[in-house]
Design a protein around this nucleic acid. Structure first.
Lengths: 188, 188, 188, 188
DNA sequence: CATGAATGAGCCTTCATTCAT
DNA sequence: AATGAATGAAGGCTCATTCAT
């Protein structure tokens, strides 16, 4: 998972850094490169060599989740039922966002530090675009919904689930909110 | 609008501080009391005297919006049509949140710096609770929606509208998102 | 106890300030005029009018103790037994210093803020000088002890009692230390 | 004298900081880390890296004196004459305290910032305890004197010598006071 | 006389980033 | 490549003192 042309020890460092950062992200601590160096028991310089900014590191942390999401997206594209395909994809997305704090930040950020991130976000975006197109063609989603709305709406749902107190129920809450969004709060 | 027992000059300063803070909030700058003192051309101590923390100041900035919202809430309670009443209230809420950056922060914060804020948030919360109760009794909203969901959902919508790029269209986008949430993304 | 030519309300303020300061001294809080004004529920200006500096206030707080000490000094001067007279006086002094935190500071200070303080310190100093002279004449104290040593030694004993952990036993400890000083640590 | 695993340049800085602090201590100026950074012509961060608090720095300044004292203590333990041994040790202690302003503060402080300080204080304390025990066994000191009294009494003597005074004569004064304490002010 | 708002110097501390070793 | 010491701008907060009201 570290970039290919890397000496073995350098690769080991790369992994250690990302692992430490992952832990920090999970416990909600903001990433500080000095701090990470200390915890990973290496010099700051080493961390900076691998990740010029905290954003770059955060993206590296988020990458596996983004890749998994992209993979699920490909599968969704294979689904015959356009409504189900889109719903599945959105569900996965939400679950990932709520589960992995790195994701929401990276997803909502307007610019990226790593090319790989841009690539993955682009992939996800076009998968979403395609799934939405099909769903619209099948007339299962409201016509005023544009591809540009998907990311914001997912980020919004994830944000909502985080505002809601109970951290333990977060995934469950997020699922409920997504269902509500898909089906509508109002009964018709 | 400054707290009642305040000398005229002190009240003037209070206003200046809040005005400067309002500008900063509007341009998206985080509030720093030192910075505000400089811009308001007064000593730091003066700012600290009026607002012991940046949170307190932010809440003071948000108060008018919160009050307006509360007033609208009271009106909504007078509406006969439970569905429309709730929808109106939520619409106002969203519009306010998107229009006033201070609001979303204050609303999402788990604790308050000013008693007035707590009071207003409590009012809004109970208005929402009542409107939701009526709507549920009239069976116009999905039954799994609880009063605790309203604030998170509104914050989520506002957040979504902000993630979506175009700042100019933000209110419009937020309205669209709210409609989508109310009616559902999916057509049934 | 407030200076004579003072309007009744001003005198009341003077008393309140000193009372508040006394409480603070007793609980070991350093005197801050702003703080005192708040606790005494009056403007800072009022406090400053009465006491231009924290030192002046501290001396006002210490004055009663100094006066009591001076009174005891006069009594000691009436005692026939020079050794007992000096020992009594020193005992009183130590007890006062340890009991009243204001005293040790004021006593050790090289300069005074209030004329009254200077006057009292001078009185005490000459009482001590006289008691010491008599004791020396009676050859009950070591001849190398000068009047200038009395204040430092008493301050030292008080300080020692304060360094010693147990605050509850402070008076007792101070008495022990004084006895030790008078009789000598070493047995001859 | 800087802690062992330190790069040469870092060690140089460590020395500079301690040297500057030593000067300040000697001239009675309270230690302020920013101030020290300025005088040592280095960034504040450097000072903070080496000494997280002013207390830590002060203890570093005091360490040599403490070590010298501890060494003398070991020598005193080798002395056959219990009375002389204790008196010598106390004399050294007093001289050090009066000579080095850092010492009295560090000695009187109830808690330490550096482990080394704790260690040294413990050593000194147990040396004192042992010397006192021997002196008591030999019945040369008053029986009510406990090991816990030694530190307070020495601090008290040092304080007394500093209260009034010709700074030049301070060591001489302190010696006189110690003698007085040992032999008693009163002639028997 | 009393009030208490205003002042702002001054201290503390953190942290992103650079660069000598 | 790795290290980690050094940097210093930046922000936070307090408090003694003044002075308009």
């Amino acid at each position: 998972m570290p970039p290919a042309p890397l000496r073995k020890d350098a690769a080991r460092n790369w992994e250690r850094i990302v692992a430490v950062a992952r832990d920090l992200v999970d416990e909600g601590t903001p990433l500080q490169l000095n701090d990470i160096a200390r915890r990973a028991r290496m010099g700051v310089g080493t961390v900076y060599r691998h990740f010029p900014t905290a954003e770059a590191l955060l993206e590296a942390v988020a990458t596996p989740s983004l890749e998994a999401l992209a993979a699920h997206g490909e599968q969704a594209l294979a689904d015959d039922d356009p409504g189900r395909a889109l719903a599945d994809f959105l569900t996965r997305t939400i679950e990932a966002q709520v589960t992995d704090a790195a994701l929401s930040t990276v997803t909502a950020a307007p610019t990226d530090a790593l090319p790989r991130t841009t690539e993955l976000k682009r992939t996800l975006s076009s998968v979403g675009r395609e799934l939405l197109r099909r769903a619209r063609d099948a007339e299962v989603v409201r016509p005023d919904l544009t591809p540009e709305d998907l990311v914001p709406l997912m980020c919004g749902i994830a944000y909502a689930a985080n505002v809601h107190g109970a951290p333990a129920a977060r995934v469950e809450t997020a699922r409920r909110y997504l269902t509500a969004l898909l089906e509508g709060l109002y009964i018709r």
